[in-house]
Design a binder for these strands. Structure first.
Lengths: 197, 197
DNA sequence: CTATAATTAAACAAAATAAGTATAATTTTA
DNA sequence: TAAAATTATACTTATTTTGTTTAATTATAG
């Protein structure tokens, strides 16, 4: 009746997650085999299959972990006593840094896996909910212009992300921090109620 | 009787070589499939197998091409009218740059492929021959100290290569050019007959 | 110390992927 | 426009990967 397996976040589990993440980032998902992850993580195949039904379940849990971390970060920022605009800026920068850190290879392959489409849709929905939540906070605080709709806000955020990772823009602003700041300044100039408008 | 296939270095052939090299450098040899190379190179599988019996034959031809290019470079340098010591310096720098450019992944995997061991041994033997040839030129020109043996010369070169790619040394001398210059200065100080000795 | 849970190692069948070939059709090129 | 080069497709065979089963080993809590 001793239930040690309740150490759900056991050391082996974390080793698999970390190694999987590392290998997926470097080589993409399809190139990496379960056995490879096990060897690199110093874990037997049986242990892997104890925690994950298959490779795609591992992928899901990695992404879920990333999302959770992201939500936690957002919540921390939103609880701070700083201007709303500053909160949004920090959130955006954190998100884009995350995308950069994990690289395109992993995300782009992840998004195209047919079996994962329902999961991806749900993650997306969660993300949108969070964005709307932030948006509503801004509205409530009177920090966002009245005529900006949530849809347009989302649209701006999406394009900010695309532009922030654009290779041409990287040539113009090589430093990521500066690039993102500039993009926020330009794209969100008319969104926030600052002294200037 | 028209023999177009005598375009041995045809455009398709070069595309396969280039794409294969690129993919092997990024992901190593074992992870890359023949079909993947074909797709990326815009070439059908049949064309691939016209030029190469299999993936390892492609690997061989890539390495042979690299070696040939290296030998050509050495011959050019040696034909120039510059001090012997300067020739050796340029050759060493070129070789180490080559190793860096192709990265560890490709070379390390390449060197461990069992089926390629005879080929590797031959390439090695050719390389050693070339080194000895250069050494003998130096001896003939009186540019190398009398008591330096070819074996010791080779030993020094080998360790120069190892040290030039050492991560710890990279922290001390981040710039590769400076690092190699310094190593040559120190390790070969007693090899060349310079005004100072 | 000892029972129990956790992990491993090895062997294995089934599934999936990759290799390599044969054929006919299409495209290039001279 | 005819020969050569290339492709597309379909296919068989080989190899790799998956996921499971089993028994043995290791770690741990009481």
């Amino acid at each position: 009746m001793n239930k040690k397996q309740n150490n759900i976040k056991s050391i082996k589990y974390r080793q698999i997650i970390e190694t999987g993440t590392k290998l997926f980032i470097r080589h993409g998902i399809k190139r990496i085999t379960v056995e490879e992850i096990c060897e690199e993580a110093g874990v037997s195949k049986m242990t892997f299959y104890k925690f994950f039904a298959n490779k795609l379940e591992l992928v899901k849990q990695i992404v879920t972990g990333m999302m959770d971390e992201g939500f936690k970060f957002v919540d921390n920022i939103m609880a701070q006593d700083i201007p709303y605009e500053e909160k949004v800026r920090q959130n955006i920068k954190h998100k884009i840094e995350g995308i950069r850190k994990y690289g395109d290879l992993f995300f782009e392959e992840f998004l195209r896996i047919p079996e994962l489409q329902p999961y991806i849709a749900e993650m997306n929905s969660n993300a949108v909910k969070k964005i709307i939540e932030i948006f509503n906070t801004g509205k409530a605080e009177g920090a966002i212009r009245e005529d900006i709709t949530p849809e347009f806000y989302q649209y701006l955020l999406g394009h900010l992300s695309i532009m922030g990772n654009d290779d041409n823009l990287k040539k113009v602003f090589p430093d990521m921090g500066h690039r993102i700041e500039t993009l926020i300044d330009v794209l969100f100039h008319g969104v926030f109620k600052t002294p200037s408008n």
